[in-house]
Design a protein around this nucleic acid. Structure first.
Lengths: 230, 230
DNA sequence: CGTCACACTGAACAAGTGTTTAATGTGTTG
DNA sequence: CAACACATTAAACACTTGTTCAGTGTGACG
């Protein structure tokens, strides 16, 4: 993350730290590395932020604010808006997305806050669409909100694999264009042509108790995602 | 000549390393930490694996094999089978899932191999279902395969957030049960009640050139996931 | 002017890192 | 037995880490 040349020293350090943490991870990025990027001494970082952990906390807070709070950027669009923004100003947002990815898979409370914000934005969007009659009736809205949030985040967390798997070089505009229709078809029509899997799972779940209630090889419940065809 | 090398010590070190890497990350897990878990000295690890990086490579390979190759565990079920297995033998698979999560978001070729294996398993499953007439016609099968793989992985990578967000404590069986129907409904019926978003995106994409082809505020293309209601 | 505050630095420090070395045991083999 | 191969270790090594320390420069304010 490159900050404006006239940015305050504190801000330059923070931006350099975000870039370094995003690029190499919190442990691997050293204070001296960050200091060099920011053009200052390592001691000055401690002077300003108290400790490396203090620096991290400030970076966490800044990234959350930049991605969520700031301008209510996500309030309207969920994770998709994030990716569009990232494309529009790639130099600026790429480190933020990298940072966010590392954050979301870490066990920090800042990660929890970020995810909650994203989920809240997703919920707001879905409720707005539900009010407009665009949404199919959901059997468990909390699960839907969480799942849609997860599914919106997956291409960001795994964007390297996503791009590589489809022969693109990063989240290019061409790639997003190629994803658009298939994903919208998925969201509109689903993946399956009939409801055989669905009704089978429904039957299995409503059956009070299986033949032998233990966890056999063929569990009654289908599960997250590519559900099995039994 | 040489009696069969005492594999048990090597294996104990490898397993301790996988647990340590999964728990604290590759950088944060020290050789001495791993050595202590395995009940050996740090020097012995280097003796057996050459270096910490050598140890990592062996752990990577082992995890890939345990998750993918071994018994063709995933060949039939994609990421969903993984989670079911993880539930069935939690003590054993939890470190593997943690390790896999860190692996998939790292920039190693082992991560690429793992993802390719998972995608191949997903493709096999989808093609089998397509042959059985269960699948809706896909406009871009490669995108579908990649997306379904991503969506299957998301609950694993973000399982902490998934569980926390739904008030559960980890990937419990109760949580998987609760996810089953909503997700299958999603895969069977989609999220939206009509195709307004879909046709709007189709129109926008097939329109040869927009009013001003630059990247304006309202891009022609919808994008990954919670698509905007324009 | 003095002095107070503070951004800022190079050098040093203690702790931890991966790795090397020299040595010890221990079993197998000729 | 002697000779060797090899698992195993404690100790040392060179290096990096986050942090501290003692100081320098500079600008504001009396």
């Amino acid at each position: 993350m490159r900050s404006a040349p006239d940015a305050s020293t504190r801000d330059r350090i923070r931006d350099a730290a975000i870039a370094a943490f995003a690029e190499r991870g919190f442990d691997a990025a050293s204070l001296r590395d960050i200091a060099q990027r920011a053009g200052v001494s390592a001691a000055l970082i401690v002077h300003h932020f108290g400790s490396k952990d203090g620096l991290r906390e400030e970076c966490d807070a800044y990234v959350v604010q930049a991605l969520v709070t700031d301008k209510g950027r996500l309030a309207g669009g969920g994770a998709s808006a994030m990716m569009r923004e990232a494309l529009a100003d790639r130099q600026r947002y790429e480190p933020l997305l990298d940072y966010m990815s590392r954050m979301l898979t870490s066990d920090t409370s800042a990660a929890d806050d970020l995810f909650d914000s994203l989920a809240a934005a997703t919920r707001a969007l879905l409720e707005q669409q539900a009010a407009a009659g665009m949404l199919r009736l959901q059997s468990d809205m909390d699960v839907t909100v969480t799942a849609v949030t997860l599914y919106g985040l997956a291409p960001v967390l795994l964007r390297r694999q996503l791009a590589r798997s489809l022969g693109e070089d990063g989240l290019t505009e061409a790639l997003l264009r190629r994803l658009t229709l298939p994903l919208l078809e998925f969201y509109t029509l689903g993946l399956y042509a009939d409801d055989s899997l669905l009704t089978a799972a429904r039957d299995a779940l409503t059956r009070p108790l299986g033949p032998h209630s233990g966890k056999g090889e063929n569990d009654p419940h289908q599960d997250p995602d590519p559900p099995l065809a039994d």
